[in-house]
Simulated scan of single mutants.
Amino acid sequence: MSVALKVFDARAVREALTVTDAIAVVRKAMIALSSGQVEQALRSFIPLGEEQTFALMPAALGGGEPFGAKLISVFADADHPGRKRHQGLVVLFDAETGAPVCVADAEEITRIRTAAASAAATDALARPEAARFAMLGLGAQARAHIEAIAQVRNIQTIRVWGRDYAAAQAFAREMDAAHGLTVQACRTAADAVKEADIVCTVTGASDPVLQGDWLAPGTHVNLVGSSGPAKAEADTTLVVRSRFIADHAGHVRAHGGEYLRALEAGVIDDTHIAAEIGAVFAGDAPGRTGPDEITVYKSLGHAVQDLAAAAWLYANAKEKENGH
């Protein structure tokens, strides 16, 4: 029996998948990934030109859950110089019949699930009393991260930094109005992270914009923006100083720019990855081990997160159709 293909455009994804829902979805997905329930291949890239890449990210959720892939293009954003867009599709197949059952906008899923994954990691790794938040980078991911992090900690102040100070000021005003929080633009990244409890980097930087010496003891950092081996948002000092938690160890060893630069410099060895975040979520590995420890969550993003989000959208839509 054929099954009608469900299609979720960006608006449909945005209206159906809340950050709160996504935090629970990606937490479960990362536990499944770290426990070996998921089949997932390393992402593959095809370079298409200057600042233009096509990527394929396949996975099977296991346990009778769907399988599929994210097909994504990473191109310069013509409307926002210096930024990139991740446009594409998440395609879902039924595990029983092999039929394609769902297609969803990948850019919107990526925006939501990336911030949700950072929020889940922050909830597990940041100090319970963390209230001062620093955001390095502007744009869609910065907006999503501010919304998501505020759901897991009682954020009192936010400092933001971008290469264009005027743009950072405009962004700060926008976030202040949207969330009712005290949001301040900073002229330097060092000023933004000074005395911060939580730091998120969501830039397109090829070389570090964050230095480990700037951070106070006890800070938690989400490294999110760099997703390839040739790029790094933070320096080797931060990697060395931190309890370094990977979203997935194999992927970080292949594509984690910050980790690879520190390894090449000889300042860490291959045991420096303390744990995977899924193992921390499951209670199989410790997260933060002391109040003064600097923790780092290295986020590369994974097909399992995208597929789990699409599967949630698909199941939620079917439940509504059935009157539940």
Results as ranks from 00 to 15, higher is better:
86 H>A: 12
5 L>D: 03
45 F>M: 12
245 I>Q: 10
32 A>S: 06
84 K>L: 15
251 H>D: 14
148 A>Y: 08
111 R>S: 13
85 R>W: 03
244 F>G: 04
33 L>T: 02
250 G>F: 11
72 I>W: 13
309 A>Q: 04
39 E>Y: 04
62 G>L: 05
298 K>S: 07
299 S>T: 11
309 A>Y: 02
11 R>K: 15
11 R>S: 15
100 P>G: 11
26 V>L: 10
74 V>Y: 10
34 S>I: 02
231 K>Q: 13
193 V>K: 02
275 A>D: 08
274 A>S: 11
161 W>K: 00
150 A>C: 15
267 V>T: 14
238 L>E: 05
86 H>V: 08
57 M>K: 03
141 Q>S: 05
277 I>P: 00
263 L>E: 03
199 V>H: 01
40 Q>Y: 00
60 A>F: 02
302 H>P: 14
272 H>E: 05
35 S>V: 03
219 T>W: 02
51 E>P: 00
90 V>G: 11
302 H>S: 07
249 A>K: 09
237 T>I: 14
27 R>F: 01
11 R>H: 15
265 A>D: 10
48 L>I: 09
120 A>E: 06
95 A>P: 07
140 A>S: 13
182 T>M: 12
153 R>W: 13
241 R>P: 09
239 V>A: 11
225 G>R: 00
276 E>W: 04
164 D>R: 11
211 Q>I: 08
308 A>K: 04
2 S>P: 15
179 H>W: 03
301 G>V: 10
171 F>L: 08
126 A>Q: 02
263 L>Y: 01
254 A>G: 05
105 D>A: 06
278 G>D: 12
14 R>N: 15
